[in-house]
Design a protein around this nucleic acid. Sequence first.
DNA 1: GTGTGGATTATCT
DNA 2: GATAATCCACACC
Length: 213
Amino acid sequence: MVNTIGDGVMTMKRMGRAFFRRDSITLAQDLLGRRLVRLLDGHRLACDIVETEAYLGIPDKAAHTFGGRRTARNEAMYHDGGHLYVYFTYGMHFCMNVVASTEDNPVAVLLRAGQPVEGLEIIRGLRPKARKDKDLCSGPGKLCQALAIDRQQNDLDLTSPDSVLFIEEGPYDRASIEARTVSGPRVGIGSAGEWVEKPLRFFLKDNPFVSRG
DNA sequence: GTGTGGATTATCT
DNA sequence: GATAATCCACACC
């Protein structure tokens, strides 16, 4: 497959705690172009992240933690940066978030889309309804299905050495990623008042693996 | 290519 | 009891 993000030198460096312990807007932008790696049955599945959304926690009417609500479902968002928050929605789909900041500041970044780059045959098998490769991970539910993410991965630590899911630095030049990063309103948050229009969705301009939105 | 509506159930009020 | 950080099939252009 042609790499549509750009050229660069491959690195396998994993992102550590400090990468995640930042505000969710900064993290949402810095996650673009990073490699999301899932280890499954001894195989490496990977997607390069092309679309994210920042959720700003207590003041953010669209966030699950709006107003400081703390429930069994959103507990992971209150944990330290670098944890994963997976939730079930529409009776059918899972969505995954990377928790940002530090403990007790419940902010996170929703991973919305990626370009599959490793383990394509397995990913295609996990996404039997996808007609084309660009439909494999072009949405938060699709991304979870493509990488076999569900409740079992909720609250896992992306920085743990034996984690089945982690983020690598990725092969791209950061200035190039930043130059192509654009923003817009978040998707699917219809009843969040003034928060609906805030430009907290970040994606790579003209990348075919971005969701419809 | 675009637009619309149904699926399906955990979670919260 | 209502809602949901969605996806897919199908209709139509």
